[in-house]
């Protein structure tokens, strides 16, 4: 499915509608999504469309609700697409500067770009 009209794919164009602006501000932030079957996915928000289908990178899958104890081991999914109809709730990570880590600033960009996990499909 090739996208041929440039205005559809153009991202980061400032001066677009406020809704779009809002979505663009969330890009590259950590996102926590609960799905209809109770699983929680945590990953970096990469892409969405009009049906609220969301693609997150570096995605981790948790079986139980996030606050339950004991903490469980996540399963690494990598790049995942969650159809809008299966989304129950969306949360965004609002920590602007990660705490206690001036050392780590430089690597934040890296961790973001590390989100393009290509799962092994073959």
């Amino acid at each position: 499915m090739a996208v041929d009209s440039p205005n559809l794919t153009s991202s980061g164009t400032s001066g677009s509608r406020p809704e779009r602006q809002k979505l663009e501000n969330w890009l590259n932030k950590s996102m926590r999504i609960r799905m209809t079957d109770g699983r929680t996915l945590v990953g970096v928000f990469l892409c969405t469309d009009c049906d609220c289908n969301i693609i997150v990178g570096s995605c981790e899958e948790y079986l139980r609700p996030p606050d339950s104890q004991p903490k469980e081991d996540p399963r690494i999914l990598g790049l995942a697409m969650i159809p809008g109809k299966h989304i129950v709730s969306i949360e965004i990570d609002d920590t602007t500067v990660p705490q206690g880590s001036e050392n780590l600033d430089g690597s934040e960009a890296a961790s973001v770009s590390a989100c393009f996990d290509h799962p092994d499909y073959m």
């Binding site: 090739a2 559809l8 794919t9 979505l23 693609i55 990178g57």
Partner: peptide
């Protein structure tokens, strides 16, 4: 939900380095 519903059909919001090609290799949940 309300923001995304304002998008047009086929319009994507995505990061600079992310395109349809990458999107193809995402696992579809559910």
């Amino acid at each position: 939900f309300s923001a995304s519903s304002q998008l047009q059909l086929g319009e994507l919001v995505h990061t600079n380095m992310f395109g349809l090609f990458e999107a193809m290799s995402a696992i579809e949940m559910m």
